[in-house]
């Protein structure tokens, strides 16, 4: 029965698939970067001793963590243009959705990382005259990020897989590209198994990196 398969379709579709992978990687990288930046800010607000600030940040996190990602994507795609009165386009709407959604998860990872740095370290920093913000920047955050690298990477692998949801707003990422060819040429098995292998290999590489880093940073 394998005779019936036409694997050459993959070769023909390659440029189209690579193009889709470009979109997937672009979304992943920007969303990870934005998510970590915004997540760090949220984490700092969340541990603020000033109650109203930590409450707002905490509510944000709990809210987004109780929403399915696909719902958040829909919102930014359909509702935000209604509110601001003009369309913002599929790409930007999913980008904002990803950053805001992932930031809630990154926030919790980063908060745990910050709290893994002992109070004595902040004391030692402030004892030489650093301000709270300087102590965070030069002493706590660098150590926190080191402790967090494996978990951050794991979350980023999940994020990479989640980008496939963008098909709902008509963006053409890796999965959608494959899907288009698969249905056009009626080559479902060939394309779906190929992209499964690609996702598997990329995520496997990611997990291997996580394991290496874990070994490197746990002394």
């Amino acid at each position: 029965m394998f005779k019936d398969f036409d694997w050459a379709v993959i070769g023909r579709a390659l440029p189209f698939l690579v193009d889709g992978m470009g979109m997937t990687l672009q979304l992943t990288v920007i969303a990870i970067f934005g998510g970590i930046c915004f997540g760090t800010l949220l984490a700092l607000l969340r541990i603020s001793p000033f109650r109203p600030i930590s409450f707002v940040a905490g509510s944000y996190v709990n809210f987004f963590r109780s929403m399915p990602l696909i719902l958040v994507i829909f919102w930014f795609y359909f509702l935000v243009p209604q509110i601001i009165g003009r369309p913002i386009g599929g790409f930007y709407s999913v980008l904002i959705a990803f950053v805001m959604f992932e930031a809630a998860y990154y926030c919790e990872i980063i908060r745990a990382g910050i709290q893994s740095v002992t109070r004595g370290q902040i004391m030692a920093g402030t004892a030489i005259g650093l301000s709270y913000i300087q102590a965070m920047r030069y002493i706590v955050l660098p150590q926190a990020f080191r402790n967090m690298i494996p978990v951050l990477l794991t979350q980023s692998i999940i994020m990479f897989q989640d980008t496939s949801l963008v098909y709902v707003v008509g963006l053409r990422d890796f999965l959608t590209s494959a899907d288009l060819i698969a249905t056009r040429d009626n080559r479902l098995v060939e394309l779906y198994s190929t992209i499964a292998v690609v996702y598997f290999i990329l995520c496997l590489l990611g997990s291997l990196a996580v394991r290496r880093l874990q070994r490197k940073y746990t002394i």
């Binding site: 370290q121 030692a124 402030t126 004892a127 030489i128 005259g129 150590q143």
Partner: peptide, 20 residues
């Protein structure tokens, strides 16, 4: 307080050097 602390040295039981 930051300015004052910078003029008073402090040494801790657990050293508290910055490990990174």
């Amino acid at each position: 307080l930051n300015a004052l602390r910078s003029r008073i040295g402090m040494v801790f039981q657990n050293f508290e050097l910055f490990p990174h």
